[in-house]
Design a protein around this nucleic acid. Structure first.
Length: 494
RNA sequence: GGCGCUAUCGUCUAGGGGUUAGGACGGAAGAUUCUCAAUCUUCAAACCCGGGUUCGAUUCCCGGUAGCGCUACCA
């Protein structure tokens, strides 16, 4: 690893997404992935996926699967893939090289039990101060005797010692060494900590730009210390504002439910392109009022300069009412926009498995005919089930016969209209124009308005008032089904 | 507690020493179509507070407040 001192050999950026497999793929993580990917693609660089799985206790295979599942749905891909657990020798080697330089020390204090001993209120932030000054000889002896220890970084805390770096988003950053605790590099079981493993791998993989959540902004001072101690030039840093819930708190599954998981969006019928588009608009702006953008347009427009600094709220409804209300309205709107932008063939292909999965029997040909009628009427792919169900069922679900009654009309008018329709539709070609002419003429003969004519028919064939345009609908439904449903409606009225 | 980051309509954001503070979502009203949707038009809606610098601050500086983050042998 030490041979590559330049962050990038060919001047092309190398970026990474480094999730720790301790849960499902979070929307915030997805956005981090997307920004890294966009940066790589925009600049002809390399996108690396690295599983930061050094926390053996909390890592699960289910989580690894969930992350891949989410990433697969996004469909962006990556160029190289690594697993930290396979690189432990590298991490330890670097940790000990830091120790050799006198920049780390052994801490023989037994590990704390986590939660109970958090520093803070008491102001005791520097852990086990005595250990920092332990004479080297005694340290060696205790280690040789088999006493367990953690390896801690010896942070330079003389007055005037300041750690600095430039963040591409937050600008110049500086922090006094005296305000940085002696963080651990190696745990007493010999496993590297996140800080060490992350920096060791970033250096070894020649990562040129670290684009990650702002929760790491203050950790970066530690990382700069590690890079320098290990003899590597630190990469460029760009921290992203965090995604938060409407209540301002960090997105968490326990508090906010499934809306924080990427697969929830997939399962609700979001298009990956729309979801990506939505996430990009949280904390980044192309600065030209563009909102709806394709993947390629995002690549072309992406730059670190467009990233802003304040946390962004994902504006979902806390108690999750209807599926549509669950999500940020802008995400839903963008999805509808992307759906409208899809070619009928492509949309139809996405809709088909959803309809079939819901138990309807439908052929690709039928789906292709239904799709144009609902494309502008659905916001989420799954809406097809409520917007087009009547095209697929043999028997309409029960509906209120009162719905058949037209505006400013009564049951008698509904009856007359339906009976007239019955006779007219029995002798007309089921194509848009002939249907249009025949039904309008019929309305005139009955002395009712076109709307009063169409409404009872619409309800009779669709089972509800709000539906796609009538003639197209009848055309797809066909004469037999139409006449059967009208007959049933007349029976209901009677 | 310490350290750090942040602050423009309800939300996402643009802007920036002098602007009618712009766009989008959502909301309201209207137009249009056979209903719905789509589309179009219009309306309501914001610079956290206090000082300073300045002829002039929403913008720059300081302070406050609030929110968030880090402060683990988690990541």
């Amino acid at each position: 690893m030490t041979e590559s001192l330049t962050a990038s050999s060919n001047g092309k950026p190398r970026v990474r997404f480094a999730p720790s497999p301790t849960g499902f793929l979070h929307v915030g993580s997805a956005r981090t992935f997307i920004f890294n990917w966009l940066y790589a693609r925009r600049n002809g660089g390399t996108m690396i996926l690295r599983l930061d799985d050094t926390d053996v206790e909390r890592n699960t295979d289910a989580s690894v699967n969930s992350i891949f599942e989410g990433l697969k749905w996004l469909g962006l891909g990556w160029d190289e893939e690594y697993k930290q657990s396979a690189r432990l020798d590298l991490h330890r080697k670097i940790a000990w090289s830091i120790f050799e330089k006198g920049l780390a020390y052994r801490d023989f204090t037994p590990a704390h039990s986590g939660e109970s001993e958090r520093s803070g209120a008491q102001g005791t932030w520097l852990f086990n101060p005595g250990m920092r000054e332990l004479p080297g000889e005694e340290s060696d002896q205790r280690a040789a005797a088999g006493e367990p220890f953690a390896l801690r970084f010896r942070v330079p805390r003389e007055i005037g010692q300041v750690v600095r770096f430039t963040d591409a988003v937050y600008g110049e950053q500086a922090k006094a060494g005296a305000d940085i605790e002696d963080f651990a590099l190696l745990r007493s079981d010999g496993m590297p900590t996140y800080h060490l493993a992350s920096c060791a791998d970033d250096a070894d993989l020649r990562i040129s730009h670290i684009i990650r959540g702002q929760d790491h902004l203050t950790n970066t001072f530690k990382h700069v210390l590690i890079f320098e101690a290990a003899g590597f030039p630190p990469p460029q840093f760009a921290h992203l504002p965090l995604l938060v819930a409407p209540d301002g708190t960090k997105l968490s599954k326990r508090r906010h439910g499934p809306v924080v998981s990427v697969t929830t969006y997939r399962d609700a019928g979001f298009l990956a392109e729309a979801f990506i588009n939505f996430l990009c608009l949280l904390g980044w702006s192309p600065k030209n009022d563009r909102e709806q953008m394709s993947r390629q347009e995002l690549i072309d427009a992406f730059s670190l300069e467009g990233i802003n600094r304040a946390n962004a709220v994902v504006n979902f409804k806390e108690p999750a009412a209807t599926p549509e209300e669950t999500f940020d309205p802008k995400a839903v709107w963008l999805n509808a926009e992307h759906i409208r932008g899809l070619a009928i063939e492509d949309l139809s292909r996405s809709l088909l498995p959803i309809v079939q999965g819901a138990g309807f029997s439908v052929t690709p040909e039928k789906m292709l005919r239904v799709t144009p009628l609902i494309r502008e009427r659905i916001k989420l792919l799954r809406d097809v089930l409520t917007a087009a169900d009547f095209f697929f069922v043999e028997q309409l679900a029960p509906y209120d016969p009162a719905e058949l009654i037209p505006q400013k009309g009564d049951a008698a008018m509904a009856g007359r209209v339906l009976e007239k329709a019955q006779s007219v539709l029995a002798n007309v070609e089921f194509k848009h124009d002939p249907l249009d002419r025949a039904l309008r003429a019929a309305a005139q003969e009955l002395g009712v308005k076109a709307g009063q004519m169409f409404q009872p028919i619409r309800v009779a064939v669709c089972g509800r008032k709000n539906a796609p345009p009538l003639f197209e609908t009848l055309e797809v439904l066909g004469q037999a089904t139409t006449l059967a449903r009208i007959a049933q409606a007349i029976a209901k009225l009677g």
